[in-house]
Design a protein around this nucleic acid. Structure first.
Lengths: 234, 234
DNA sequence: GGTCCTATAATGTGTAGACTTTATATCTTT
DNA sequence: AAAGATATAAAGTCTACACATTATAGGACC
């Protein structure tokens, strides 16, 4: 199918293996034939079998261990992949017009909870940026962000009135590690005001911490407007 | 590093490429050398370069097109991968003791909203299962699930008092497609009662639809206890 | 200038074979 | 038995090469 010839491609093998798992021919926890045997069965090289099985393992269907062999995962550890787009792209993908508005930007010393969260030494300087992202005139997301001055000195001279801190950071500082959480929080007066909901309403909330080589760069809280849902298919 | 020899492994190449992107040596949108040239530079085969670049593309750093070549993605479309464990595993990973309790299980005709959501023909039969998942004695998740009888006829004879519908389904029916959403909802009286929160409180909520070869199998709403957060690192 | 065709460059995938790494199983010793 | 050493099986990776696929660029034609 992949090749016009009669060769067996790694995609064919993936299909077949998946079908066997689904049909129950290969039961959960059962040990599969090794790569050599499969290569013989599919009359292809071990390289091709290897790629197929490796990808199936990455996708969470199989577990592979050297010497121990390959087995079917009993509880398919399926991983859902959510693309984390930038707000602008997300709004535009909805067919809307993205608009950004700065609320405030101040240099201050890190509050204690933030120092604790990011493992900063006490009283380090941070820039606190608050801003809104709109879909047309409808509030889409309220963003509350702290940027560690020591990690991004240029932030002190940056004007966030036109460019959002996220877009600026992405263009300015690379990152190596991210911790991303989602939760349901309650709208306080501030958030309720910006998102045009009632105080106390549930708000889908994201928290993101970004590091560069172990150095904390930024902490952001993102409050999404009512009705927001994060969706994926697989 | 990967090999004890002095050969360059695909992991080394990935590292180097990432470093060049991060350092700005390879700017966003810029066209990278082709695989042959890179192979020459790293003195390895094109196969090895291919694997490195292919994986970086999968991870969302690069965009590759035949003939057009490879370029650095301007807005790194990083994808966050969340593992979707079964509740039992999730609770046990927290060091708790998992406990399951059936609330109700009834065969009924699909309500209209469900028929619409799953594209069922009107008045199809479904089994409606409601159950609780505990961490010790603490409520962890309240689950509200509908299973399409036509897709899983055995469900009519199944006793859900000991085994949760999710665990049962996974062992019984394979699936090919899943739509998974997360949102913040408001606890109604029922949910509030089960999760031991106040009515109106924000509740982190998941919705999951599962298909087998185009046939809808099940729709589930999962209400998480207060304080739940879905987290990932990358 | 626009439309279709065609050559070509870059990635995509397969074959064949070798060596590497590591977890396990077995054997040996205590 | 328990603990440690060793052989070995299976996956992991690399080389070297070939052919396949496909998007683009440039030319031919209208």
């Amino acid at each position: 199918m992949a090749q016009s010839n009669d060769t067996t491609s790694y995609k064919d093998i993936k299909q077949t293996v998946l079908a066997r798992i689904r049909s129950g021919k290969w039961q959960p926890d059962s040990l599969l034939p090794n790569e050599q045997e499969l290569a013989a069965e599919f009359s292809c090289t071990r390289t091709t079998v290897n790629r197929a099985m490796r990808e199936l393992a990455e996708e969470g269907y199989l577990e592979r261990r050297r010497k121990a062999g390959t087995r079917v995962l009993s509880a398919p550890q399926r991983q859902a992949r959510f693309t984390i787009p930038m707000v602008r792209d997300e709004v535009e993908a909805l067919g809307g017009t993205y608009r950004y508005a700065l609320v405030s930007a101040d240099s201050e010393t890190a509050p204690e909870w933030l120092s604790a969260r990011l493992a900063l030494s006490p009283k380090q300087s941070v820039v606190h940026v608050r801003c809104m992202h709109f879909n047309g005139n409808t509030p889409f997301q309220y963003e509350d962000r702290w940027i560690v001055t020591a990690s991004v000195p240029q932030v002190q001279q940056t004007d966030f009135s036109e460019v959002g801190p996220n877009e600026w950071l992405i263009q300015t500082v690379p990152f190596t590690n991210v911790e991303l959480s989602f939760l349901a929080s309650r709208a306080n007066a501030t958030v309720a005001g910006f998102l045009d909901v009632t105080e106390g309403d549930p708000v889908f909330t994201g928290e993101r911490i970004t590091w560069l080589e172990g150095q904390p760069v930024t902490f952001a809280k993102m409050y999404f407007a009512a009705g927001y849902r994060m969706t994926t298919e697989f």
